[in-house]
Structure formats: structure tokens, C-alpha cells
Computed example of a mutant assay.
Amino acid sequence: MTKSILITGSSSGIGYAAAHTLQGRGWRVFASVRKPEDKARLEQEGFESVLLNCADTTSIDGGLAEVLERTGGRLDALFNNAGFGLPGAVEDLPTDGLRETFETNVFGLHHLTRAVIPTMRAQGHGRIVQHSSGFGRHVMKWRGAYNASKHAVEGLTDTLRLEMRGTGIFISTLNTGPVTSKFRINSIPHFERWIDWENSADPDRYKRELFHHLYEDTGRAPFQKEPDAVVRRLIHAIESPNPRPRYHITGATHIAEGLRRFLPQRALDAIAARL
């Protein structure tokens, strides 16, 4: 029987690469997107696509219901990939901006995860892969909203993994470092909507430290990988008989984990403050 997977955030980047690769491996891929034009584009490319906005529970429920109707009520895997960043200093981050970030990155992910579990319990198996980040375990300046959302994903996912033991449902986390995508470009509208940098305590700091990285293509970051590096770990998480609880992807995440084990917090703070 052909296995099925629902992938959120499939319009570009990692989700798009995952959809292509898994379809090529024989998976029945449901590539979810927020915009009708992206849905039409993916369908022209031969994908089964559904509209699913992770910031809208009604949209989540409707998108999943459409998938389950097409599969006859089965779903073998879920890849919660959708998410975005809101750059800015924490002291300038409005609560509503943080709330908007959590709606997609945390609450939408959580809602969809809970919604698929009854199906997976009924069929006796399933794989749920949560796309966290290296920033789910470490932090850098200017990324407070994103750091916080991914730390929340880590806590929910680690707990769920323990609670699903023995059910046949395996839970894995992807901790991804720098990967080629539209993440930087997609974060600009969120920054411009929510961060009043001109009236911040230190506007010049934004110009010195953030704008160059936010508004300009500065080339490849150290240890940057292409989306295929993430897809390879995803394949292991959904196809291996013994998937790992956690996958560190790119050298940056491995180095950060190593430093975390051996250095005190003051030293880690000093390193992160210089990045």
C-alpha cells in the first residue's frame, strides 16, 4: 500500500524539496500551502495540494479533513514544516507580534499534531516529524520571537515523544541550521509590520547589526546546506524502522551542541553575543 504524508509549508524551500523527493520515492504526498496560486502551481507540477493555513484552526481542520477524505481515513506521516521569523530586539517586540509568530510556529503545529493522532492511533502506526531549529536549543540576538517559538516546539515535542511510546507512533525533531531558503526574505514583512525600530532605545544598533543581514543577500552562511540535507534526515525519520528522536542538521548545530556540553553559560553567552 502506498504510504501517505502531509507536508505543511510546501510552496518553497525545504517543504517543496521534501515534496518532490518523497513523491519520487513512491510516497503519496499532500503538499499544503496557504495561497491558492501556490496550490494551483503545485497541482500543475503533479502534486496533490491542499490549502492549509497554520495560523487558522478552521483552515487546519478543513485541510486535514480533505486529505483524510482522499486517503480513506489514513495518514502515515506528518511533516510540520511551516514557520516564519520575526526579527527584532526583544524589548521592541510587541506581544501581538509574538502571538502571531506562535500562532503558526507553535499553536498551529500543535493543533495539527493533535488532529492527526487519532487517525494514527486507529491505524496503529504513524510518524510525526516536527521541524524545529538549532534555535530551539540555542539562541542568537534579534531572533527572540523565533527562538521562543522553537523552544516551545521542543518542549511539546519532547513530552509528546515520551507519551507516544508503545503506540506505534514515532515522534522526531529536526534541528536545522542554515539552509538555503526564502526564510530571510519572508521575514521582512513581519519585521516591518511589528518592529518600530526608529523609536527603539538604540535605532542605530538596528542599522549596524541587523539591516545588513535582513535586507541584503550576504551570500552563504558558514556551514550552510541545501534543502536536500534536511530531506535526507526526514526520509530516515519516516522510513527507518528505528527513527531517531532528534536530528542535528548542518555543522553549525553540531558545533553548538558540543559547546553546550562543555562550556559554562557565561562563555556561551559571550560567544553568542559576538555573532
Rank of each mutant, 00 (worst) to 15 (best):
G63P: 04
F211N: 14
Q123M: 02
S181F: 05
A89D: 14
G219V: 09
T180N: 12
P243V: 06
I195C: 11
R143I: 03
E226P: 05
N105G: 10
H213M: 11
S172W: 09
H213I: 07
G85V: 13
F223R: 10
H190Y: 15
S10F: 03
R184W: 10
L22D: 07
S132N: 14
F262Y: 12
N105R: 10
S149R: 07
H20K: 15
V67N: 01
Q23L: 00
E103T: 02
V90T: 15
T173I: 15
T167H: 01
S200H: 07
D76E: 13
R165L: 13
I7V: 12
M1I: 09
H131M: 15
Q130W: 05
K182Y: 06
V50Q: 09
H110P: 00
S240N: 07
D92M: 09
D56H: 03
T173G: 00
H190P: 08
E100Q: 15
P222C: 10
R232V: 09
I188G: 12
L174Y: 01
I188C: 11
N81M: 09
V67T: 06
W27D: 01
P203R: 12
S4N: 07
S172K: 05
S12C: 06
A89R: 15
L112P: 09
M164W: 00
Q23W: 00
L268P: 08
I128K: 01
I128T: 06
I117M: 14
I169F: 04
S187Q: 12
R34E: 08
D158V: 10
A89P: 10
W194R: 12
N147L: 06
E103M: 11
K141H: 13
